[in-house]
Design a protein around this nucleic acid. Structure first.
Lengths: 145, 145
DNA sequence: CGAATAAAAGATATTTTTGTCTTTTATTAA
DNA sequence: TTAATAAAAGACAAAAATATCTTTTATTCG
């Protein structure tokens, strides 16, 4: 297992994909997104529904419908995706799973683990959803396989 | 879900517990360990079996038996526990789950994610299994709840 | 040797995650 | 207003992670 769940991996890839296409006003559908980020279509659909309810992305039904992200949404941090789907445990939980662990009553790994978590937090809060739009549109960066 | 699986959380806690008791020559049994690190006894037994096969810990059956760690074993890095139980994907995998992602062909998050992974790797390779023995024996650090 | 002890191993159960398939609802456009 | 489109929603299935219980094997000690 990687650092993130499949759910979060697919979600980040999908949101990047939608973001880059929202930049030029198009609205990709689930099938197109799933193909381009290499994820199971219906599983991704559930994830996008949740992101939609959480206000991270928007959707329109029917012909010419699909998913998109408001201009302002492109500025949001990647962290919002994780939080929307799985809460903030990854940002706050103890590395060894100890509930008593805190700054004032630390577990053995607390201080070293804090550095890891800070780096993770930094990455997720300082990367915006629209950050890679141009590279994705030119094909300099890709999201599949 | 936290950064590590339950398996790894229990494993780290158990190994720290065994390590600290190996320092004074005792050999705790599964029941004692499970109680002191607050984990399901039989589930932990499976984990310890795997760690035992992997040479991370040792065990003796029968009366006065239990688990212990060789003096040299106390110097091994925490990373060995993770690798023994779940391989090295957490040290090497792409943050977004993309198999093509590499230094020469990076995914969007690659460079920022590398910092996180480096920090994690640093923590796990520079913390030894016996690192907290004295604090654990005096009760300055604990492993349950 | 025989009883007791404790890990190893095996079987099974539960829960969560991941994945698939079908039906419903909303929207568009002919 | 009807057919087509596409997301939403619901039901179900498979796989993996987590957890529990039982039997077997190795060891010790009386």
């Amino acid at each position: 297992m990687g650092l993130f769940s499949k759910t979060c991996e697919y979600a980040m890839r999908a949101v990047f994909y939608i973001a880059s296409h929202s930049a030029d006003g198009s609205r990709p559908g689930i099938k197109e997104i799933a193909e381009n980020i290499n994820s199971p279509e219906h599983f991704l659909a559930k994830i996008l529904q949740k992101l939609s309810k959480g206000g991270i992305i928007s959707s329109i039904k029917g012909p010419n419908g699909g998913f998109y992200i408001e201009p302002n949404g492109l500025k949001r941090p990647l962290a919002d995706i994780i939080t929307c789907l799985e809460g903030d445990e990854i940002f706050t939980g103890c590395g060894m799973g100890l509930s008593y662990c805190s700054e004032s009553n630390p577990c053995p790994l607390h201080n070293e683990f804090k550095k890891v978590r800070n780096q993770l937090t930094h990455m997720l809060y300082n990367t915006s959803i629209g950050e890679f739009n141009s590279e994705l549109l030119t094909g300099a960066l890709t999201l599949n396989k």
